[in-house]
Design a binder for these strands. Structure first.
Length: 657
RNA sequence: GCCCAGAUAGCUCAGUCGGUAGAGCAUUUCACUCGUAAUGAAAAGGUCGAGAGUUCGAUUCUCUCUCUGGGCUCCA
């Protein structure tokens, strides 16, 4: 029998009989590898284990415990989901079922507009386990588009994909289903076959560590004018342990949910009487917010910004001039008709800042002119999009508009990046991701030349700062390209916070000018930027980042004093009074309840320091210090403790710019 | 806006096959005065999200609305 030569990732070569598969290669390397294998990379493409290899192929085995391996498990599990649903609900049309982060989903169109319920999920999951127990093979085959259209004649969504792809109109959503002009599919049973690029595990018995999570509606092809399908989400992993760890992570994330913690820690609430997406801040939340704002103001004062204030309402002419009424009217609160015009709640501050710039003649000597405002804006976010503090209808932007010359632009962007990162680090974020968003060809104003110029300036700013970034094509605002900055929180989730946006448009619309050194009039360049984005959202992210345990400098209460018994009450009160006079936020828990109970309550309130005072402390002027997350220390001198506390606060709060 | 699921005491939830409701924690009071994560007892606390319909009677069934949650779409 003829032999073929296979090259492995380490460069070594092995000989196999002709017709050998990737599974044979894995088995020849080791039995553990063979067991862990789910697919392989053959000459750069992902292949099933069962496909015969060509001579000279480069082969790398994909194991289940890698991202690529889990992707195969998840994608294969989604096929099992589709088979289970089509068995249990005859007549179901199925559309697409890709692997996603942590899992997979599949979209279905059920007969008679039926929808899934919780019980259905249980039944479907049970049927999936039967299919896995049956150990059905995933058999790959290929066909022409015409054959595929015939095979999937009763599956309109599949036909839609085939026609679109063969018609040259494929998009990203189609890529897991189909590629090129030959259509591949995988058959599990005589009845069930699904169009798919693959790869898949060899058989359904290889699967099993999964859980169906939830049902949701999803538009076919993401088009809100199109049909609404029923989507089932699931998670799948290489082992039961990995599934359990994933579920544990979800539970931990839920414990950090800012909406839950806002209630538990009495920070703020969303009274239904107010209307959706509107919050009221309780005293404890307000303290934290005030500290954030104070810090932001201090940094801006040191950073060469000038503070301004603008009203919440404006005549519609202003938003006509800015162009926002043309582009974003649906997102604005409706018009208020007054006897002297039509007024709107402001959805952003920039037009008003432009009016400040334009209020008198400006000289190049004033530039860059940096206007800063904690500006309250109101946007009519669609009902289904509201989400706690993260998506809210009334919020405060830490908003700045910088007017500068073309020559100043790149320096300004570079120093802005510096400023943004420095402020975010002060709030405990260390890991940043940068994005450069470019023009949306369907939605923009201004000339191509001006867009290229702005985009290039942002790009050079990032390059000059030496930052790695990703480009998001077509993701820019209508008025200009932007840099967005994501941070990674304590449990690895990413949040988009800061934004730096170039704008060659508003200066035109507002006819902004400055007098240059040449005594001629020039148009300034405008930058929009926000560090927190919105105070509310940033606060929400901080709550989740710290799980409600704010660092001492911004904690609503920095310490609580607990007299062991009533006899120690006067001493405890003197400790509170002395600490308050030093500017610390402290309260007392009277000796009405047992000490253990009061300690527990203080810990649940996530107060940084619990100070227990008893006989010894009264006698020698000391404190029992019980720090959050640390060991109890008895007999600490009062001055010693307050000095330590002061140092901690100062160290956490850098004020350099 | 669309699909699905919800809304019962301050919080977390149970319950009523249609006859106006209960627990734990929190709160208040009393007793206990305690050295590092839940002392005991009692009291008080609810138009059962809002409106309409069916019914002798609706917190429960139906409809509409408001708000919330999970998705989709959107996010200047």
């Amino acid at each position: 029998m003829a032999q073929i030569t296979i090259t492995l990732p380490d460069g070594s070569q092995r000989l196999y009989d002709e017709g050998a598969t990737t599974a044979d290669v894995a088995a020849s390397i080791g039995s553990r590898l063979a067991k862990a294998a789910v697919a392989a990379v053959v000459d750069g493409d992902e292949w099933d284990l069962g496909r015969a290899l060509p001579d000279g192929a480069h082969v790398a085995i994909i194991t289940a415990d890698t991202d690529a391996g889990r992707h195969v498990l998840r994608h294969s599990t989604s096929h099992v989901l589709a088979q289970a649903v089509t068995q249990l609900f005859p007549g179901t049309k199925f559309s697409i079922g890709p692997a996603i982060d942590d899992g997979f989903y599949y979209d279905f169109d059920l007969p008679d507009a039926r929808t899934f319920n919780e019980d259905d999920l249980v039944a479907i999951e049970a049927r999936m386990r039967e299919i896995m127990k049956a150990d059905q093979p995933f058999v790959r085959f290929e066909m022409s588009p015409d054959e595929a259209l015939a095979l999937f004649a009763d599956q309109p969504y599949k036909c839609d994909i085939i026609q679109r792809v063969t018609g040259g109109a494929a998009d990203r959503g189609d890529s897991s289903e189909i590629s090129g002009t030959t259509i591949s599919a995988y058959r599990n049973t005589p009845q069930f076959v699904d169009m798919c690029v693959g790869p898949h595990v060899a058989s359904t018995g290889r699967l099993g560590h999964f859980k169906l999570m939830k049902v949701a509606g999803a538009y076919w092809r993401g088009n809100e004018k199109g049909p609404m399908l029923q989507r089932i989400y699931g998670t799948a992993w290489e082992s039961k342990v990995a599934v359990d760890e994933h579920l544990h992570r979800l539970a931990e994330a839920e414990k950090r949910d800012h909406r839950r913690l806002a209630t538990e820690l009495d920070l703020l609430s969303f009274p239904t009487e107010l209307g959706g997406g509107l919050a009221v801040w309780h005293p404890k939340g307000a303290i934290v917010r005030k500290l954030m704002e104070d810090y932001s103001r201090e940094r801006h004062a040191n950073g060469g910004y000038q503070f301004v204030f603008t009203p919440h309402l404006a005549n519609g002419n202003l938003f006509q001039t800015s162009g926002h009424l043309d582009w974003y009217k649906d997102g604005m609160y409706p018009a208020m008709e007054m006897d002297n015009g039509t007024y709107y709640m402001k959805p952003m501050n920039c037009p008003m800042h432009c009016l400040i710039f334009r209020s008198r003649q400006r000289s190049y000597r004033e530039l860059p002119l940096r206007l800063f405002e904690l500006g309250n804006v109101y946007r009519y976010e669609r009902a289904g999009t509201l989400h706690g503090l993260m998506r809210i209808r009334g919020f405060t932007q830490d908003d700045s508009h910088i007017y500068c010359t073309e020559d100043q632009l790149q320096d300004e962007i570079a120093s802005l990046l510096d400023f943004v990162i420095s402020v975010l680090k002060a709030f405990g974020f260390e890991d940043f991701q940068f994005y450069l968003s470019t023009k949306d060809p369907m939605k923009y104003v201004g000339s191509d030349e001006i867009w290229d110029k702005a985009t290039e300036a942002l790009r050079l700013g990032l390059d000059r700062y030496g930052l790695a970034y990703q480009v998001k094509e077509g993701d820019a605002a209508f008025y200009g390209p932007k840099i967005d900055i994501d941070v990674k929180d304590a449990i690895g989730r990413r949040w988009q916070l800061s934004t730096i946006q170039c704008d060659f448009n508003l200066p035109d619309r507002f006819n902004l000018e400055y007098v240059g050194a040449d005594n001629a009039r020039h148009r300034p360049i405008m930058l929009h930027r926000a560090l927190f984005g919105s105070i509310e959202r940033f606060f929400g992210v901080l709550v989740e980042h710290y799980a409600g345990a704010f660092p001492t400098w911004m904690a609503p209460l920095q310490a609580r004093v607990l007299p062991v018994a009533e006899a120690h009450q006067p001493y405890a009160e003197s400790v509170v009074a002395r600490m308050r006079s030093s500017g610390f936020r402290v309260d007392i828990a009277d000796a009405n309840d047992q000490l253990g109970k009061r300690i527990r309550a203080a810990k649940l309130d996530k107060i940084p320091y619990v100070l227990v005072v008893g006989d010894d402390d009264v006698a020698s002027g000391t404190l029992g210090v019980n720090p959050r997350g640390g060991e109890v220390e008895r007999g600490v001198g009062f001055e010693q403790f307050t000095a330590r506390l002061q140092a901690e606060v100062e160290q956490q709060l850098p004020t350099t710019s």
